[in-house]
Write a protein that binds this DNA or RNA. Structure first.
Ligand SMILES: [Mn+2]
Ligand SMILES: [Mn+2]
Ligand SMILES: [Zn+2]
Ligand SMILES: [Zn+2]
Lengths: 132, 132
DNA sequence: ACCTACTTTATAATGATTCTAAATAAGTGT
DNA sequence: ACACTTATTTAGAATCATTATAAAGTAGGT
């Protein structure tokens, strides 16, 4: 019931698959980072029936487009997504290949002084790479 | 002649292919950003003979390992490299899919206050996404 | 119930990257 | 110059995340 309105208000039909994916993605205290394959595994663990991989991709992209998920730019062969869609920064642990959130207070305000003609700043993200 | 010592000192044999790739990558006033396919095109334009795609990949990875190139993390299906290996930040133009360097003075110092036990900061990079 | 547009799904296609193994080239010592 | 060893190049195949296809299923409206 919890996610039916959210989906309807976004113009997305509240199908069984989308509602189950909502449960996995959004029915948690903490936000988290994931790849498509990790999400597929989480879905398998939490839910009895199978959702096809194509639907997982479709749904994640639909949710991203609606602003319920965002991509995190890191150099990996897989795309990383974030259920925390607020503006925030990341540690990236190169050994474990894990993302860790940084609070904005951990980084401080960033003032971009350069301007590009005819372009607006959409986001400012800091990536801090960690090694041992 | 210019790059033979550079390669030898890195433990890389100065082959014809590597020297030609050095010309394309490093024999310019300005640094630049590229994908493997863009580099392959540049090589074709500047040079008579063909270098196999496998060699372009091998060479770029070898140069990256030696610190003569670095990867730029952005969400793209292709990996972006940078001949500017100093610590610096980027604009990413979402429409044109082009990277633009930011000077450190354009961003100011970034002080990461959070610490992770047993990990050291390797790099701090800011990515500023631009839209129209 | 019926219609239509949206969604799911299995499967195939795509495409960047990596792997393989055979042919070449570079460095080293004689 | 030659023989020998090791690094490198290369064409082609393999990998694998992601996207496209198109047929079957579903949601929501009339
Ligand atoms: Mn990607
Ligand atoms: Mn990549
Ligand atoms: Zn995050
Ligand atoms: Zn740069």
């Amino acid at each position: 019931m919890k996610y039916i309105d959210k989906l309807r208000n976004s113009g997305l039909r509240p199908t069984k698959q989308r509602l189950q994916i909502c449960e996995v993605l959004f029915n948690t205290e903490k936000t988290f980072h994931f790849t498509i394959n990790e999400l597929e595994q989480k879905i398998k663990d939490k839910i009895d029936c199978k959702i096809s991989l194509a639907t997982v991709y479709n749904t994640v992209h639909a949710f991203e487009k609606k602003g319920y998920l965002k991509q995190i730019p890191i150099n990996s062969n897989q795309t990383y997504f974030d259920t925390n869609v607020t503006d925030h920064h990341h540690f990236y642990d190169l050994k474990d290949q894990k993302l860790i959130d940084l609070e904005n207070s951990d980084v401080g305000p960033i003032n971009i002084k350069k301007k590009i003609n005819g372009k607006r700043i959409k986001s400012v993200e800091v990536l801090v790479k960690l090694e041992d």
